[in-house]
Structures are given as structure tokens and as C-alpha cells.
Simulated assay, not measured.
Amino acid sequence: MSNGKGTSVPNPFEAGKGFNHLSNRLFTSVVWIIGMCTILFICGLLFLILQKGLPELDWGFLYGLPSEIDEGGGIGPLIFNSFYVLAISLVISIPLGMAAGIYLAEFAPATKFIAFIRICVEGLASVPSIIFGLFGIALFVEAFDIGLTIIGGAVSLAFLNLPVLTRVTEEAIRAVPKEMKHASFALGSTHLQTIRSVLIPVALNGIITGICLTAGRAFGESAVIILTAGVSSSGEMWDFSLFSPGATLAVHLWYVQSEAIVPDAQLIAEKAAAVLVFVVLLINIVFRLPLWLNARRTR
């Protein structure tokens, strides 16, 4: 840059250009390295779990009844209990969590009381699961005196999922551009029609992501189930009774590793762990499949 007298004036923007470029390259490289290391660690962990159990799986193990003493027991009733408890908990928690999240995002007044409620919800979302298990014992085992049952474990899991689903739904609804909401009002839609036809469809990706996280966590949860549904099953493959013992696959994995006396306890644990990881991955794929199909249709 010239000052009109033939001498050049240093450009203040040129001085830091090289340093900024170097910092950007360095930061990008660090992020790439950390990201790749994290992905490799996760893939290695999954491979370590699956490669020990998957080759040993057979239909007899997946459909067989668990054994307390003899080797060769299966996990059939435990897989059924896992899906049964998960389904009941999601049927309870998804409508309530979404309704609470929509209320906080769209209808709740901006008062100190509502701010306190949000803090409480965030706090409950980070509370250890064993606290909800103790609450389930106090409610179902002591107050209602129904013992360790499937319904007690499922409702306790629903309580565990509610704060997370509420916060995820609220944040997903708030992330929808206000212009879309105002455009819906301008076209004559009511608030209910706007929520149903605009806000929820746009926020569906974030809501389903939250449901995937809670479903995977609930399927692999053990502390709540041990305290509210017990560590044993009824011994029947398709037991739909809500008042039967409700041990799940995650509970059986813990029990085999710590308390069981069967000779092949280590092998059962490895195969059960592989099934547990595979099912959690499958749950995430099943919940996201409608989003992938909808994204392909709208391209």
C-alpha cells in the first residue's frame, strides 16, 4: 500500500494473515486427529465385544431358557422382557415427554417458576439411574406392595426417560425458525395446527434422535431393573403378565458375571454382550429409517 509519496505503508491485515492461516490449519488437523482416534476407539470397542460373542451365537441360545446350574442355557425370556419393558416405558414416556417439551417451548410463561422447572428437569436428566430405581422400590414395592414386576421396571424406566425427552423436545421445537411459525399463523393456522403441521415435522429429526438415545439407554439399563423388576424371569418365553419378574438381558449379563454358578458363565456373558450391543445398534437404525426414507423422498 502506498501513501502517495512513493513509500509503502504496511497493511495491518497482512501481518496476521499468515499466523491465522497456520492456526486454522493446526486447529483443523487437531480436530481431524481427535475425531479419527475417537472413531477408531469406538470401532475397536465394538469389534472387541462382537468378535468374541457373535461367532458363538446360535438359535438355541437366542430362544432357549436360562439355566441356573447346568451349562448351555439361553436368553430367550430375557430378550423378550427387554423389548417388553422397553416398549411399555416408551409408550408412557414419549407422549408425556413430548407434551411437556412442547408446553415449555410454546406455552409456558417466562417466569421464575418456569425457569426453576427447567433447572429441575435438567437436573433430573443427569441424576444416576439408581436413584430412579430407589424411587421405584419406594413406589411399587413398598407403597403399592406389588413386588418386583415388569410394570414396576417399565414405569421406573419411563421416569428415567422423561427428563431427557422433555429437554430434547423443547430444544428441537425452539430450534425451528420463527419465520416458519409466523408464516403458518399468517396463513390462518391455529396454534395447534402450527405445532402439528409445522413445528413437529421440522423438529422431528432432533426428537427422534432423543428417542434413540433414551431407547438405547433404557434397553441397556440394569440398575433400575434390578431394583424394581428383579434379577429373574418367569421362565416362560412369551410371558405378557405385567406382574411377572422382569429381568432383562442387561440384568442377566450382570448376574452371570457376578452371581451365577453355571460352568460356562464367561461364554454366556460374551454372547449376551454381543447380542446387547447388536440390538442397541439395531434400535438406532430402526428409529432413523423413517427419517432416511423421508429425506430421500424430499430430495
Rank of each mutant, 00 (worst) to 15 (best):
E170C: 10
E170Y: 03
E170I: 05
E171A: 11
I173R: 00
R174T: 02
A175L: 02
A175S: 15
V176P: 02
V176L: 00
V176S: 02
K178S: 05
K178F: 01
E179M: 01
E179K: 04
E179S: 09
M180W: 09
K181N: 04
K181L: 03
H182T: 14
H182C: 02
A183P: 13
S184K: 04
S184Q: 05
F185I: 06
L187N: 10
L187H: 09
G188H: 03
G188F: 02
S189G: 13
S189L: 15
T190V: 03
H191P: 04
L192G: 05
Q193D: 07
I195M: 14
I195Y: 01
I195W: 03
R196Q: 13
R196I: 07
R196S: 05
R196Y: 12
S197V: 03
S197K: 10
I200Y: 10
I200M: 14
I200N: 09
I200A: 10
P201R: 00
P201F: 03
P201K: 05
P201N: 07
V202S: 14
V202M: 04
A203M: 04
A203L: 03
L204H: 05
N205G: 15
N205Q: 12
G206D: 05
I207S: 09
I208S: 07
I211F: 07
I211A: 11
C212W: 00
C212T: 15
L213F: 12
T214A: 14
G216K: 03
G216L: 05
G216P: 08
R217Y: 08
F219Q: 06
F219I: 03
F219V: 11
G220V: 09
G220T: 07
G220Y: 11
G220K: 06
E221I: 10
S222A: 15
S222V: 15
A223D: 13
A223G: 06
V224R: 00
V224E: 01
V224G: 00
I225N: 01
I226C: 04
I226L: 14
L227Q: 12
L227P: 11
L227T: 13
T228S: 09
T228W: 08
T228M: 03
A229Y: 01
G230A: 02
G230I: 04
V231K: 10
S232F: 06
S232R: 08
S233D: 10
S233T: 15
S233K: 04
S234Q: 04
G235E: 08
G235Y: 07
E236A: 13
E236H: 13
M237C: 01
M237W: 11
M237V: 12
W238K: 00
W238V: 06
D239S: 08
F240G: 09
S241R: 14
L242H: 09
L242F: 15
F243M: 14
F243Q: 08
S244H: 11
S244A: 15
S244G: 08
P245T: 05
P245D: 02
G246T: 06
G246N: 12
G246V: 11
G246M: 08
G246E: 10
G246W: 09
A247D: 14
A247I: 01
A247F: 00
T248S: 08
L249D: 09
L249W: 10
A250F: 06
A250S: 15
H252M: 08
L253C: 12
W254R: 06
W254D: 07
W254C: 07
Y255M: 11
Y255H: 12
Y255L: 06
V256W: 12
V256Q: 15
V256Y: 13
